[in-house]
Amino acid sequence: MLAFIIRRMMQSAGVLLAVTLIAFVMFRFVGDPVNQMVGIDTPQAEVAKIRESLGLNDPVIVQYGRFVWKALHFEFGISYQFRQPVTKLLAERMPATLELAFTAAGFALVVGILMGVYSALRRDSVVAKVFEAVSLVGVSLPTFLIGILLIYLFAVILGWLPSNGRGQVVRIGSWWTTGFLTSSGLRSLILPAITLGLFQMTLIMRLVRAEMLEVLRTDYIKFARARGLTARAINFGHALKNTLIPVITIAGLQLGSIIAFAIITETVFNWPGMGILFLQAVQNVDIPIMAAYLVMIGLIFVVINLVVDLLYGLVDPRLRMTMRR
């Protein structure tokens, strides 16, 4: 088991190395960073000095090594726009994005599984048909449209929930801020979380439904019925657990996407997260931020994949065997 984890972590390191290479290449080839930093009237000598101080005259391989070394220490340089360390900028905005993403993922997972199980068990009921229709809408409507519709309905017409921002936040520790502890923070979270999670929710619902229908046809479910187990034990004990492997796979990948692609939702709801920071960075060719964002998302995906692999073993004893080898 430990050998498996170590082997997987080494693979992850390889993946991250590739990601840093791409991020670094972006540095090198998307415009000249010095031009972004200096004005038109900066003297040539000054430009050369900045170039030297940034280490841009060193061989490429040395620059890459330095980039990786700094990345290992979570240093991604100074943002061109804000003249502040990129790490500090990201850290300030990370809590907002992560809280939104995990709330959305939790919502998608819980509601998606419940709806999926229900529509598999009561396949012909009206409610199941409604779920099916809703899921079709969720899969096909673009996120920004759903966000705008929700704002229009719940913020503009009904006035129940705030339409933008994060509400009041509480500081925990040196840099984490949370909206979970205030009522305005929680209220602000509802609409963006639903918007961000709706697509994943419908995806999970459809997946659970399909897998569940498959599992309910198997011999061990028939045998469980023949043993007189209660419907609850069969449906939620045996059947649901057997649908979990694909659900974990998809949910894991989707959690990565939720974090990485919260950009649209954050824009719609003016949510002060990393997404907006990234958009601004793209507009202003703020490469340090873009590179750091890329590396960070790579890291998140790699960690999630590792967790997913470990969860497989937790769910399925047969996979535990392959891990031991």
Binding site: Y220, A226, R318
Partner: peptide
């Protein structure tokens, strides 16, 4: 009927490889 199944009436299926839940 569920209470009878397993307690009063048992059933053995054809394929032992698929009759048992693999995860338990």
């Amino acid at each position: 009927m569920r209470r009878l199944r397993g307690r009063k009436i048992g059933m053995i299926f054809q394929d032992p490889l698929t009759s048992l839940d693999p995860l338990f």
